[in-house]
Design a protein around this nucleic acid. Structure first.
Lengths: 333, 333
DNA sequence: TTGTAAGCGTTATCAT
DNA sequence: ATGATAACGCTTACAA
């Protein structure tokens, strides 16, 4: 077991004071004579003394750490959220734990374990049951939910789905498309659920019938598999609205294999505006989410709660933006 | 869901034993009478007792956590490494800290601070000075270096650069290209340094002159900026070998703006084989790195060291693979 | 087999 | 202004 640096006792001994004084100096507490303060400070610097985190935490203080629970890191979405989160948290002097649940069932226990190493937790997407989240929150640990329905009185931060889904659908209607298919599992996440619902509502208001082709996940291969089912079936859609960009790209691949031109024979749209989106085919029409800002915002909310600046829950909805490229239909210059 | 907050004292009281016995039962130590063991176990389950990490760590035990230090999370490379690392570490019951240095100078101190919350550290790329790494390692904390030159007797894991760079360069020579430019900063990372050197050597052996166009980073915009400088200059290359895929994509954009056909007027290659690579233009010829495996391997090495299974340093070199697509020249079917 | 008690390094509450 | 000292919750000799 690695011995660590010098302890508060060592500093006290060398400075000829008690450990209480060292603690006071280190903690920046006023009531210390300037002379002793300087003396202690120089010993601290000399020894490179840093208080033991474990001891502080045990003495009832903060961990100065927060954790982030996400389903999976593959694909650009979650890593971008984490990037935004880490940047903000680390700027505030907080260390960051990450925990990927990878769809495994033992996650509940791991999350619970993580919960007692941190001062607050960001829980994303479908990773752990509400029950567990509530339990952690009830324990007094601030929790922020990202892209997840509200639960207990935890803060939530989501990105806007309804307005953008309507705008997207209407844009497609404007291109003259009439046979629509939604590619994605509307029960897999609240985001997708909202997108599907707004999509379906908009179509129904236009007197059209929305169709749902569920995917088994959010990766390209999931979109590929579902789109193949769809295009092999009898109902040939002329517009495929995918739940996210990656599944949309899977649909692109199927279209290519079926020798269908995009957008000539079939329109395809995505969601997220990942870096790949502008490069695929004629450019993927999609809805841009402020992914990084989602993470940064969550970090800020969490810090507010940790500092005790606020006790009533906040529910933030970040705006999204329709990004029109080539894949939804012809746009004359 | 287990209640929390209970301490070893609470368990001991309810089970009618001493805290030492509880500790023994929890730690799976043999010398406990089966009857008491069962009794204590059931109280532990009932209360959902989990020992305080801080107290354990303070008592001189493990943190059961490791940390990973990376320069930046934007772009697919580092997040994929982290994914591989997290998956492996978390499988082994280790929590994972992440620390992005974002090129800031205070990183040294943050890394040092991180070091005393963990049992081991993975340090990637150009994040923190060797001096600091050595200091941490000397303190007895196992350190693994990823895509970084050896230092002290820390383990290292890198991916193969030389052979692949030679293969790539020779492949381009085979296409008849003669005026080559390397796009990337050979001093920014050991990886790029090795790629540049092998590239330059191969050209010189062929009697050709290698040219270097430094970039100021690894993102698309860095490649874009540097490639624009290059193509606005007088020496028009017919092949651009970029240090990674993202800068290559930046070069693509410049080529498009200059109305240069790829690969007709100019060949462009990358490195990494990120998901975008196959979708860009005619497909980006590149070298595939086993990015995820890089992270997983690092995690395994670190765990070996933490468990004390091994004391002498290991230096692993993971194989790479040339991926030929359309951007390097015409390939008849 | 089980219990007692020391120690891990802090912070915080008292005295002084 | 400073110093003792009691927590904090755990592991682990050492005793019994």
């Amino acid at each position: 077991v690695p011995r660590t640096g010098s302890t508060i006792y060592e500093v006290a001994r060398r400075a000829g004071v008690s450990i209480a004084t060292v603690s006071r100096v280190h903690g920046g507490i006023e009531a210390v004579a300037p002379a002793t303060r300087d003396r202690v400070r120089s010993v601290i610097d000399e020894l490179g003394y840093r208080p033991s985190r474990s001891a502080r935490a045990l003495a009832g203080l903060r961990h100065d750490a927060t954790g982030i629970v996400f389903p999976d890191l593959s694909g650009p979405y979650y890593s971008e959220v984490i990037l935004g989160y880490e940047e903000e948290a680390s700027r505030a002097g907080q260390s960051v734990f990450i925990l990927g649940t990878h769809g495994r069932p033992r996650a509940d226990e791991q999350v619970l374990e993580l919960a007692d190493r941190v001062d607050g937790l960001l829980v994303m997407g479908e990773t752990v049951r509400d029950e567990v989240v509530d339990e952690i929150h009830a324990r007094g640990l601030p929790v922020v939910l990202l892209a997840r329905p509200r639960s207990g009185n935890a803060d939530t931060v989501c990105s806007e789905n309804v307005t953008s889904a309507e705008a997207l659908t209407r844009h497609l209607l404007g291109h003259g498309h009439r046979k629509f298919a939604f590619l994605g599992d509307h029960r897999a996440s609240s985001d997708v659920g909202e997108r599907w619902r707004a999509f379906a509502d908009t179509l129904q208001r236009a007197g059209l019938e929305p169709a749902l082709t569920p995917t088994s996940g959010f990766r390209e291969r999931d979109g590929y598999g579902a789109a193949r089912e769809l295009l092999n079936g009898r109902a040939q859609p002329d517009a495929v609205v995918a739940a996210n960009d990656e599944t949309a790209i899977g649909a692109f691949r199927v279209a290519r294999e079926h020798a269908l031109a995009v957008p000539g024979d079939i329109a395809i749209t995505g969601w997220d505006d990942i870096p790949l989106a502008e490069h695929v085919g004629p450019g993927l029409t999609t809805v841009r989410q402020p992914i990084r800002e989602l993470g940064a915002t969550a970090a800020r909310l969490l810090l507010e709660r940790i500092r005790g600046d606020r006790t009533e829950p906040h529910h933030l909805l970040l705006p999204t933006e329709l990004v029109v490229r080539g894949s939804c239909g012809p746009h004359p210059e």
